[in-house]
Design a protein around this nucleic acid. Structure first.
Length: 779
DNA sequence: GTGCCTAACGTTTTT
DNA sequence: CGTTAGGCAC
């Protein structure tokens, strides 16, 4: 261990590190060296005789856990760090639950359902109850159930709770409690836990089995929790239980960066920590080592608009640095182009590498325009988040085989693979199996095992038996082979790999490669030593439980690859970059239109903006578009209210540069609003139709006139969709597909109008939703 | 039972 | 606009 590790800390940091016993709260401002303090503190504990086996460190992302482990290893120099229990709440609890699952009636190889799996179960239940899944939307129900679990409310309590019941009644969805109850029973029957169960069941376990609680209270003598501001009541109660004996709880957080309330996190946990324990030591880390003065000042002033914070004063010794550039573009595509152009320019001018840039947005859907513009300029990039690798269909299919092999109770997986690839077990047979399993109160798998007994006949029973034999052969493999060999065996026997291999389409090729990647990851898992310390658990069960908790950001952590990164602001928490583009700063987008109805929601959006700003070390661009495509139609956006909250002094509002915008349209109207007047005054309102034309000054050549059937219409050379707002009955219009027609009637809400149009050559009268149709006004 | 076509739907944010 | 789920025809 390095002897001088304490010398590298400032006074407050050191104070936090050397506090060994008793509750400790570290209020760590953005960029104040939080991870350094946490890792050094772990090293310091160990140096003072604390056994690594007795330290539990909880984080929110696998990435943070990995980083922490690496940095502790670096300080300690030895292999002792391996014995630390470092991980996310979910992964640590999954591991603990695995060892204790039998007490709760779960198999130790319980399946972990991701959000999609859970919603699928919920949807099944909704259909079983003969409810309308358009009214009882699975995602809505899922969120209610999730919220219940995160506040430790079991189905029975949910049904009895007046407040909750009133809410459901008011939302006209009184049966959510019933669905929750059935969902809990069903997932239990399936031997499966969803994300929230990993917390909820952990709590139940500790609460119901005093000997288990005792065991872990004495194992985890020192507990550290990162990002404490993002913990929910379930996590809070578990920590309280685990730490009750020793009270060596160290929480680290920043109330200004609390951005996960939608997941049940409550900022109260950190605000109240001092009241939860006696003699809480509070340390504030207020020196920022990350950002320039300009960036930090803007961040501080923005966050000052929130009420009720822990008082702190974040400052920096760094240089003032560049001003923050505020950029307006006409459209989202121009925004993308501007950012790509600026990255190219900055690389030349200031010698940055691709890896120095990040593009941060509010919603994943915004990535598209940036992807396109970066691709066009041949700038390599990588998107973090979005669709996880493990959510892809081909991966889910493959994993479902592995899951059913490990846990035959898992009906979600069973239903997924029972007839894929096609083996002659159709809908009718599956329905029948479900009915039988309900009648006899056994699992679907048990029905299949005894198919002949239950009266399945002919080809069906043969197909079922072949399927059962196959899965059993996989189970047999498990006892003799490692996870990788089993997976390869599964791939061969099921023909899954072959099927994808034979699909020579581009998508088929990609799918084949994805499955190969999955196999590689299993191989890697079996071959590398277990990072989590503890027992070397190389089983398939362990692998499967782990992958569900991985996010895309954890995949391919080739941090060194020189690419521009794109991610949501949520995903960027805890990271830093020399140059940051925060994009889409428009009302209804950021702040999100979903989050402007209460002060609490709006303040969380503002904290999100604060997080975005404070990712930047040296340079920060804030961009927004005058109008952008949303659901396929062009919408106007006002600049985000947050832009008005920034101090003028550090902002360069005249900056609309980057070349492209100005060059394309001769300057003038795109150059932001400099010093005079209200910034909104100078925004020119344009109709979508006008913008469309400005965007494409050069008309695309008309499609080649090819032979077409009587129903196919070849659009006119100058075909360009017009603003539907101006369309009224009597007008002549041209539809891309149906040809020329006359509007005969108009109905629907003003923002969602439906026109009845008579197309003489295009199949008669049709109802067209104006929001989605491409129509050109002829006259 | 499979594949194709149409209609409907969607955008918060994630473990 | 893009995707996807469900209905319908082979």
């Amino acid at each position: 261990m390095k002897a001088n590790y304490l010398d590298e800390l400032n006074e407050q940091q050191r104070e936090a590190v050397i506090h060994i016993n008793g509750p400790l709260m570290i209020v760590a401002g953005a960029g104040s060296g939080k991870t350094k303090v946490l890792t050094t503190r772990i090293a310091h504990l160990m140096r003072n005789g604390v056994d690594a086996f007795n330290i539990l460190s909880l984080t929110f992302t696998n990435k943070a856990a990995r980083e922490m482990k690496e940095r502790v290893e670096k300080i300690l120099g030895g292999s002792e760090a391996r014995n630390l229990y470092i991980g996310t709440f979910h992964s640590v609890f999954a591991r603990l639950l695995r060892g204790e699952a039998h007490r709760l009636g779960y198999p130790s190889d319980f399946t972990i359902y991701d959000t999609d799996d859970a919603k699928s179960v919920i949807k099944t239940i909704i259909n079983e109850l003969n409810l309308d899944d358009k009214h009882y939307k699975p995602s809505f129900v899922y969120n209610r159930i999730s919220a219940a679990k995160n506040s430790l409310m079991a189905p029975e309590e949910y049904l009895m709770d007046n407040l909750v019941q009133t809410e459901d009644m008011r939302a006209n969805r009184p049966l959510i409690g019933k669905i929750y109850d059935m969902y809990a029973k069903r997932t239990f029957k399936n031997g499966a836990m969803d994300f929230d169960d990993l917390l909820f069941k952990m709590y139940v376990l500790l609460k119901s089995f005093p000997e288990v609680l005792h065991k872990y209270q004495h194992k985890f003598k020192y507990i550290m929790i990162d990002e404490y501001q993002d913990t929910n009541p379930a996590q809070y109660e578990i920590i309280k239980l685990l730490g009750a004996v020793n009270e060596n709880i160290c929480v680290v957080g920043d109330d200004a960066q609390s951005i996960y309330s939608f997941r049940g996190a409550t900022i109260q946990n950190i605000l109240q920590f001092e009241k939860d324990y006696d003699d809480v030591k509070v340390v504030k880390l207020e020196q920022n080592y990350r950002s320039t003065k300009s960036i930090l000042n803007v961040a501080n002033e923005v966050i000052a608009h929130n009420k009720g914070q822990i008082e702190k004063n974040l400052w920096t010794d760094n240089t003032e640095g560049d001003t923050i550039k505020l950029v307006r573009t006409m459209t989202d595509n121009e925004e993308g182009k501007f950012v790509a152009d600026t990255i190219a320019e900055q690389k030349l001018r200031n010698h940055y590498d691709n890896r120095d840039f990040v593009i941060l947005y509010r919603t994943n859907a915004q990535s598209r325009s940036f992807e396109e513009s970066l691709r066009r300029k041949a700038i390599p990039y990588r998107i973090f988040g979005g669709l996880s690798f493990y959510q892809r269909k081909e991966i889910k299919d493959f994993v479902a085989y592995l899951r059913i092999t490990m846990n035959t109770r898992d009906e979600e997986s069973l239903k997924r693979v029972i007839n894929y690839p096609v083996r002659g077990i159709g809908k009718t047979t599956i329905e029948k199996t479900i009915v039988l399993s309900n009648e006899h109160n056994i699992t679907m798998w048990e029905v299949l095992e005894r198919a002949r007994e239950f009266g399945f006949k002919g080809g069906t029973v043969e197909a079922i038996e072949a399927f059962v034999v196959m899965i059993k052969s996989f189970q047999a493999l498990l006892t003799t082979h490692n996870a990788y060999d089993v997976a390869v065996g599964v791939g061969k026997s099921t023909n899954l790999v072959k099927e994808l291999f034979n699909d020579k389409t581009t998508e088929g090729l990609a799918r084949y490669e994805n499955v190969q990647e999955l196999l590689n990851s299993i191989k890697e898992f079996t071959e590398t030593p277990d990072e989590e310390g503890e027992l070397l658990d190389k089983s398939m069960g362990s692998y499967l439980q782990q992958i569900t908790l991985l996010t895309d950001a954890d995949q391919g952590n080739d941090e060194n690859s020189d690419v521009v990164k794109l991610m949501t602001i949520h995903a960027a928490k805890g990271l830093e970059f020399p140059v940051v583009f925060t994009v889409g700063l428009e009302e209804t987008l950021f702040p999100s239109g979903m989050s402007i109805n209460t002060r609490e929601e709006l303040e969380e959006e503002r904290r999100l903006f604060y997080v975005a700003i404070t990712r930047a070390k040296a340079r920060l661009w804030l961009t927004y578009a005058n109008s952008r495509y949303r659901f396929g139609n062009l919408v106007q956006n006002e600049p985000s209210r947050f832009l008005e909250e920034m101090p003028e002094k550090f902002i360069d509002r005249s900056y609309a540069g980057g070349g492209s915008v100005r060059n394309a349209f001769g300057g003038g109207n795109t150059s932001g609003w400099s010093n005079s007047g209200n910034m909104f005054d100078r925004m020119q309102r344009k109709t979508p139709g006008q913008q469309q034309q400005q965007q494409q000054p050069v008309q695309k050549p008309a499609p080649k006139p090819t032979f077409s059937g009587a129903t196919t219409h070849v659009p006119s050379a100058d075909f360009a969709p017009d603003d539907p707002a101006g369309m009224v009955p009597g007008m002549q219009v041209e539809h891309q597909k149906f040809g020329f027609g006359t509007i005969t009637a108009m109905e629907g809400a003003p923002n969602n109008r439906i026109a009845t149009i008579l197309f003489p050559k295009g199949g008669g009268e049709k109802k067209i939703m104006l929001n989605y149709a491409k129509l050109r006004i002829v006259k």
